[in-house]
Amino acid sequence: MTDSVAMGEGVSADAVGRTGPGWSDLGALCLTFFALGVTVNVLVLERVGSESLTVVAAIAINSATTELAYVAVRDAGGTQLAAVIAGWVVASRFGLLAVSLGARLRVGHWHRAAAGLQSFDPNVAFAIQQRSARDVVRVFWRVTAAMHVGWLSGIAVGVFLGNVIGDAQRFGLDAVFPAALLAIIGNLLRRRSGALAAAVGGGLCLVLIPIAPAGVPIIASLIGAVVALAVTSGDPT
């Protein structure tokens, strides 16, 4: 845990403050998930043709990347089985994020289960950068709430007004999610260990995208974390 505690230091006016995200950060996250909700649900609705199924899928699966992966494999002519497996595989990162979050949570079982089911990149990344166990929980749910306000209104707009908006890509909405992720892990990248993990993980993914089955490049990026752990084990924490 020493690594994450030390991470609070050196944080100044940028995205992640010691006391957690401010209102402008939460607003931006809300907008980000709104954009994601619109884009994903326009795509899914086009393919399933049922508004109710699109809404239930978005809320029950609770993972835009899983939906995107499933749709991508089906569009490429993959079987149902291949598409489902791809959807599961890309969601494995939520399991890993839940591990990171779980290691910092000091709460009861039901609370843990609820937090685990809501593990996403932004809320876990913001939460684990907090110093105290109390702040981890507080920041986690605050960011989760902001994300869901955006995601749920994005679903509504995508499903019921999708044909009015037209091509969401015209507004650069597809760049919103990766840019938000980069801003969120920005502080992790300022440390040698974090930068190395990201460089190896991202590099492996880049190399594997053209040759490995969908989803595998993201799983393989785990190796980046292991390499960084081994190489920087002597670093001050």
Binding site: D75, A76, L97, P178, I185, L189, L206, I209, I218
Partner: peptide, 28 residues
């Protein structure tokens, strides 16, 4: 292994960024 809890998101989230930025199906 506690350090892994911080390094895993750095590696996996960066991979997701790469996938979303330069990935287009199975090509770059």
């Amino acid at each position: 292994l506690g350090r892994l809890a911080v390094l895993i998101p750095a590696a996996v989230v960066m991979a997701v960024i790469v996938q979303l930025t330069v990935g287009s199906g199975k090509s770059l």
